[in-house]
Every structure is written in structure tokens, then in C-alpha cells.
Amino acid sequence: MHNPQLNKHGELQHLLTLDGLPREILNAILDTAAPFTEVAEREVKKVPLLRGKSIFNLFFENSTRTRTTFEIAAKRLSADVVNLNISTSSAAKGESLLDTVDNLCAMQADMFVVRHAASGAPFLIARHLQEQDRDDIHVINAGDGRHAHPTQGLLDMYTIRHFKGDFTGLTVAIVGDVLHSRVARSQISALTTLGVPEVRVIGPKTLLPTDVERMGVRVFHDMREGLRDVDVVMMLRLQNERMSGALLPSPQEFYKVWGLTADKLALARPDAIVMHPGPMNRGVEIDSAVADGAQAVILPQVTFGIAVRMAVMSMLAS
């Protein structure tokens, strides 16, 4: 099956998912991101790579953090950025997703950054653009349903590479609500592609998707067992609506069994790093002492996120 995010030369046309993306492309993005981390340290935090380009942030689902980092990334590349909160505009008036896209194409958009509550929505847009022969317009998935959040996955890989140097000797654990997490899916795709020999997922059966081991991970339900000797701990956010009901009895019980505390972290390798995509629920999935501790790299993740998004945008536009 044709991978809709690659053009006929095998180059990146859109960034929709990390699943199925070749290792060379993942590495190329990480390599491209490296020099962009320095842009932020300059007095004038701007490069002219995307001057004159129009980037539309199409957010059908609320998000301040991700939208802001994309906006900063685009502005540092000198692009013009338009933010559209669709949940409060056209869609509310009944306009279809593709009608919205057509209208924005007519406004000479060069790139769409799309966040949508339904898995696959950015694929629909990409396919639509392809049918219209608009290969001059690029789509970046900024999170679709439970499916993928590729730039988050990439910034996590950048962070791991920054602190660990290499992927091929690592044991990585992803902890918590994998079922509803697009971040986890992108992380798993990237880690397995980049050659991490052991990727573990840890959580209750109610929060691990069916057949997840087919994605190339080892499943653990016991947090202590799962954290033993890992190099990287990637915590996931537990959303409020999952905390009680039929998936979990209470946030307290979740914290007790799967919350990351100093004593559980002590089972990991002494130099293990702790990551979290944010926003954190302190006292639910992670203890403050760990979140603010020496092993946490949560704030560097945010910083690297801007460089990685600059890399993706500049690669798509070139």
C-alpha cells in the first residue's frame, strides 16, 4: 500500500504518522533539528527559511501547548502563522472538514498543522489534497484521536538521543494509559524503527490496547517488574475522564500501583531519564519529587520540541 506521507521519490510530503516511516527519514529529521536548537540561543531567534510561507494551525480540538510550540517554530522560521480554532468557528456552523480545507487552500496556504479528535483526520486531508493535485501543500499531524502525534514522538526521540547518544542498547518503558494515547503509539513506532531492542509498556489491562504486543513491545502489568533496569521511563498523561468509572477505580489507586515514585524509579538504571509529554498530573501518574528531580528531562523535551517542529516544517517546505 502506498504510504500517503511520502511522495513518489520517497521524500516526506506530509508528516502524518511515524508508523512505517523509514529510519533514514527519522534520523534526517533529528539531524536537521540539532542546529535549530541554537537558533533559540541567538539574540534574534529567527532564520529566514520559510519567509513568505503561510502556515495554518488548524485545531479542531483545543490545545494551547502544542499549538503554541508550532506557532513559535513557524515564527522562528519567519513564516506567517494563522491560528484557527475550528471548534469555535466553521465546524460549529456545520461546515465539513474538507470544505474548511478547500477554503484555506483558496487563501494560498502552504502548510496545515492539524489537530483533530478523530483518528485519521489528517490522512483524509492529505488524500484530498492529493486528489486535487495540490502537492505544494503539506500537512503536519499535530495529534489525531488516539492514533498519532508524530512531532511529539520525534521530540521524544531527540531527547533520548541527546541524553543517551544511541538507541541500539536501550531498554525503554512507556507507562500508563497506552490505550487512549496517540503519544504512546508514535513513541512505539519511532523506538522500534530506530532500533531500540526492548520497548516495554506498563499499565493495567484496561488501559493497554488489544494485541499491543504486535506493535513490537513487551507487556508488563507490574510496574516494579517493568521498570527494572530500564534506561528511559516515558510517562503518559492520564486524562481526567479516564480516572474513574469502568477503566480505573480511582486516581489514588492508579497512583499507588502505576504512579512513578522515587522508590519505583530506583529499580531503573541509576542514570535512567524520566520523560513526560505534559501536561502532568502530579500525584496521579508522577510524584512531584520525581517530576522535579535530577533524572527528569521534561523541560528539555519542551525546548527540543520547538527545534524538532522547525526541522519538520523546513524539510517539508524545501
Partner: peptide, 15 residues
């Protein structure tokens, strides 16, 4: 179908 494909695509499954 609640299986490997739905898991990969992040589509809520029907077991």
C-alpha cells in the same frame, strides 16, 4: 474490529 489494526490506527474497537 478490536485487534491489531484498530490498535495501530488508534480506532476505538468493537471486540
Amino acid at each position: 474490529h478490536d485487534g491489531e489494526v484498530a490498535t495501530r490506527l488508534g480506532l476505538p474497537g468493537i471486540p
